[in-house]
Design a protein around this nucleic acid. Sequence first.
DNA 1: TTAATATTGTCCCACATTGAGATAATAATA
DNA 2: TATTATTATCTCAATGTGGGACAATATTAA
Lengths: 247, 247
Amino acid sequence: MNELDDFLALKDQFIPQLSVDCVIFGFHNQQLKVLLLKLKNLDVWALPGGYVEQNEGIDEAAQRILEERTGLKDIYLEQFRVFGSADRSTKEFIQKIMEVHHPEAMNEPWVLQRYVSIGYYALVDFSKVNPMPDFLSESCEWFEMKQLPKLAFDHSEITRKALETLQLMLDYKLVGFNLLADTFTMIELQSLYETILETPLRRNNFQRKMLSMNILERVEKLYTGAANKAPYLYRFKNKVVRRTNFQ
Amino acid sequence: MNELDDFLALKDQFIPQLSVDCVIFGFHNQQLKVLLLKLKNLDVWALPGGYVEQNEGIDEAAQRILEERTGLKDIYLEQFRVFGSADRSTKEFIQKIMEVHHPEAMNEPWVLQRYVSIGYYALVDFSKVNPMPDFLSESCEWFEMKQLPKLAFDHSEITRKALETLQLMLDYKLVGFNLLADTFTMIELQSLYETILETPLRRNNFQRKMLSMNILERVEKLYTGAANKAPYLYRFKNKVVRRTNFQ
DNA sequence: TTAATATTGTCCCACATTGAGATAATAATA
DNA sequence: TATTATTATCTCAATGTGGGACAATATTAA
């Protein structure tokens, strides 16, 4: 077996021309973050992604990829859109990647074929994540959603659509809690909403709305040492993880 | 070239193991309808579907399939979910279909592989559709959504999820008009909403809401000969067709 | 010990939206 | 001309929302 044979054997384990890309959101320092990979020897970043094994469901594939990059199990995960326009992956770019990683496969006719990619977005507790690069990449880092670096293929579009879907679903499904630690103050929750929705909210009305839904459990107070009234901590009553069965 | 070669040549034109399934909704006699195909020599119905050509975008593939089954161009179309669980297509069923259509290919190892299918839903003007079966099927008919026959694979689930998405999007995107003729009465529109949402609505409040959105243009009255006040006809001001770029 | 300060938690009120019954308008028929 | 069956509006109470005001409280300063 030479290297090409290895590569071809590996390839046959997966569904051809189909990939999964994950937009992993975190929240830290009042900012919405996205986890990205820096591709080896290329001046470009990409979303964590991978292929679907022949005997694996697409949701399980996404969950596996997420676990590999973050070290977390049972992540909140949602399929949001498929990206499959005819011109989504420029052949020049694939060629560059292949040259770096599998030069021996450059003559295979299928190497430059277009991929169709299923987009997932994931919401994680930033503080629990341990970013890990994959075999294609040299580093794995959080970026502020507002200041993303140059991304490969149509990954900028995928990220933008992921945010749009999250904005749309935030009120409808109450998924924001997956971005916070187990307990949080009302101000933290409000700041999360303001950041995602990109709009300021009124403190009094936000609190009224959240409390009226009867989904929060008030825990103890949080004494920070600041010279003011200590805020209560809250816990989400029925934290939902890994809801992939929506729509 | 023998038949198997023909079949294999055809196969290579498409992205392998990827398909598109379309839930085509129509509205007729106060009922929500779905267009289905009866598979040749099998006692089972299926959603109109097909494969994605190597040089074709996924939305274009769906649009092409829709046009082939309905004779309509520029149909309102929306991607809503990918179906790709590991066990979604039972091998027994695929085997039956292959026996009927391509017995010569039964020994090919890839024949029984699982497909991943992209679900689209389409909204069409029932009266304009000319149902046409494809080469796999012997007939193409409308069924009432509430009384679907036995469907192949997970097509029942796909249809159900399509309706759930439509219910969710009906108010948000005002897509219902694509199911009606160019002009319609307020009662027809209300009946459409009631049928899709599966809930009764109040005539006065429904009319108030629709008119307040300023999206309807009042045209002439409709004199049916009935012994009562004639209803106005309305036209949707900015009819949206083929909106595939949402989310 | 008390006052000042910076927040947090509630309350209140005007205004908009919604639910639900009542009433007016009108096309055909008796 | 009255009757009937709808359609189109109107009205009013109930509910929800935007936005300002005020009370409660953890710490620091006096």
